[in-house]
Amino acid sequence: MSLDSSDIEKIAHLARLGIDPERTARYAADLSNILDLVARMDAVDTAGVDPMAHPLHMVQRLRPDQPSEPDQREPFQSIAPLTEGGLYLVPKVIE
């Protein structure tokens, strides 16, 4: 599997990574090598095999619908880059 610089730009956009244009060719080469490694899977016949989502075949536990956490807005927002009046601030989204 070979990826080129335009593939990397598309993937980086999906991942919201603003990668340096000078590095796209290098990333294209690295990711292509990794996908070549991954392609060894193609040799395996997996017809009729169930996918394994969890090593212990556990099911999701349910808990009672009761509040379990205290209000920690202040400590949580104290580590945020930018807040005001209990809100997280981001650049204007709607003009």
Binding site: V38, M41, D42, V44, T46, V49, D50, P51, M52, A53, P55
Partner: peptide, 14 residues
């Protein structure tokens, strides 16, 4: 082709 295939082989490994 990737994720589902990988999870199937993961089953074989287990």
């Amino acid at each position: 082709a990737y994720y589902l295939k990988a999870q199937k082989i993961r089953h074989l490994i287990a």
